[in-house]
Design a protein around this nucleic acid. Structure first.
Lengths: 122, 122
DNA sequence: GTGTTTGTTAGTCATATGGCTAACTAAATA
DNA sequence: TATTTAGTTAGCCATATGACTAACAAACAC
């Protein structure tokens, strides 16, 4: 039983579904009702509502009930949070590649020196 | 298109688990065997191997069997791919916020003008 | 006030996920 | 050759996920 209540768990989990990613994409161009969100999908409303709930729990979106309509809108902070995690991993990785590259370059330099010395010794 | 979507499904899905994120983090500082990866976790090896398989299917890591040891290493391209998706969403969102802001600023400007005109008319 | 729209809850179902143990294979070592 | 090591497969189990239908409720429109 893994603890699925950490922020990144919820955010990445929410984004692992194509329907929910499509919802996020839609909301980047402005808030929408549940009905509006459901239009592009061949999916019963309760199912779509469930997706909205998942996105809400993950913090990726927030919703507000106005009359009988529920207005959904994006919360970009959490989006940025998951992006940052990825960026950090990539940064460490690339730093390491850089170190490796300079190490390899040094090796090459040493090899060349040794080769020259060898030739001199001959 | 469906392929792209599937790739993101797998990548985000893989990253939605804390154990798998920890594995990715570990691999940013160099490749490791399954045994080495399992050390920090109170988890049976078959369970950890399953996580490794999930990461492998998502394309986030690749593995190679050398003798009786399986060497796991990071593939940063897929990491970058998911990061790019997030960055793109955030970009659209921020562009929209900018447009809104300039609209609001224009509104303000108009209000001020009107206020001035009102005062003049008085 | 009756009917329509917009969501919502409840209950069901199939499959996926994440964990375990036990038994097995293959490589390295004594 | 016998033993240890590193990984693997198979099978089991509990819970989570994503879909559906069938009511139900509240706001709006007439």
């Amino acid at each position: 039983m893994t603890n699925k209540h950490q922020a990144l768990d919820l955010a990445f989990g929410a984004l692992s579904d194509p329907t929910r990613r499509a919802i996020v994409m839609r909301l980047t161009s402005g808030s929408a009702s549940v009905g509006e969100l459901s239009e592009p999908f061949a999916m019963a409303m309760p199912t779509l509502l469930q997706h909205v709930r998942v996105l809400e729990k993950s913090g990726l979106i927030e919703t507000e009930k106005i009359g009988r309509v529920r207005k959904c809108s994006l919360r970009a902070e959490v989006l940025a949070g998951t992006e940052q995690w990825l960026a950090r991993q990539r940064a460490v990785w690339e730093q390491r590649l850089d170190r490796m590259e300079s190490y390899v370059l040094e090796l090459h330099a040493t090899e060349i020196k040794n080769a020259k010395r060898k030739r001199k010794r001959k």
